[in-house]
Design a protein around this nucleic acid. Structure first.
Lengths: 124, 124
DNA sequence: TGGTTAATTAACCTGAAAGTTAAATATGCA
DNA sequence: TGCATATTTAACTTTCAGGTTAATTAACCA
């Protein structure tokens, strides 16, 4: 058995499953509704399996209504994954800062037609 | 070949690889440095393979310095993955709002010993 | 009761992921 | 040169993911 973060990431690591989630973000849908856009590319049981993966990862829950299984999105594991990723946010914000500084340097250079230093990355 | 989001998510879907990234977030390290904490559980070539997965996903880059291959974190794909997840943020914020409302209702009830509305979720 | 629709299960195939051990490749240094 | 260290590659095994087709289950409806 896998830890739940791994399960979430691996559920998300498939474009069909991400598309299913995207569809469900617009509202509940039955299995055949969900499958419809994919039936050119794969069989219904294949979609069933994808849904099972999503269900095991806690990303969707299936209800029952007559012969339909209305699926709905559960976003909690996505939030958990996002929370995990947050620990890296500082890194890309940092690098955006550097980009910012760099752009400022370029702008300055353009205005003053000259650089105060020979290196490219030096500001700040 | 996989699309890059799938590659990122699938690279992140392994606790060893996430631990490697976490280690790299503290600074560059060589392969053997990185491997050290895992050598009780797996062989060095296994770690090499994990690093290759991370490298192919663009999450790290390997340099060379004598016989060492210093690895460093590249956080861009993580940002991309986060950006993708952002489309779901509204959902969990929504549900936190509902929780918030609920807590407010409970508090109000405690203070006023009565509820202003007759909705179903208010008890308990 | 029997037919239709919705969905799942079973049995199977193929390929790739994740690990192994052993051998090969670089690089530094005495 | 030749040995030691760092890392990768090769060859192999096992397990699992993702797909298939065919059969089965479940519910509705006439």
């Amino acid at each position: 058995m896998q830890d739940s973060l791994s399960q979430t990431f691996s559920a998300l690591a498939d474009p069909t499953r991400r598309a299913l989630l995207a569809r469900l973000s617009k509202g509940e849908a039955s299995v055949s509704d969900l499958a419809k856009p994919f039936l050119k590319e794969m069989s219904l049981p294949a979609v069933t399996k994808h849904l099972k993966v999503l269900e095991k990862a806690g990303l969707i829950t299936k209800g029952r209504e007559a012969q339909w299984r209305p699926c709905k999105l559960n976003v909690v594991p996505i939030k958990d994954a996002t929370d995990w990723m947050e620990q890296y946010r500082i890194f890309w914000e940092e690098s955006l800062d550097r980009l910012d500084d760099y752009l400022k340097t370029v702008t300055t250079k353009q205005k003053s037609k000259g650089s105060k230093n020979g290196r490219s990355k030096q500001t700040k």
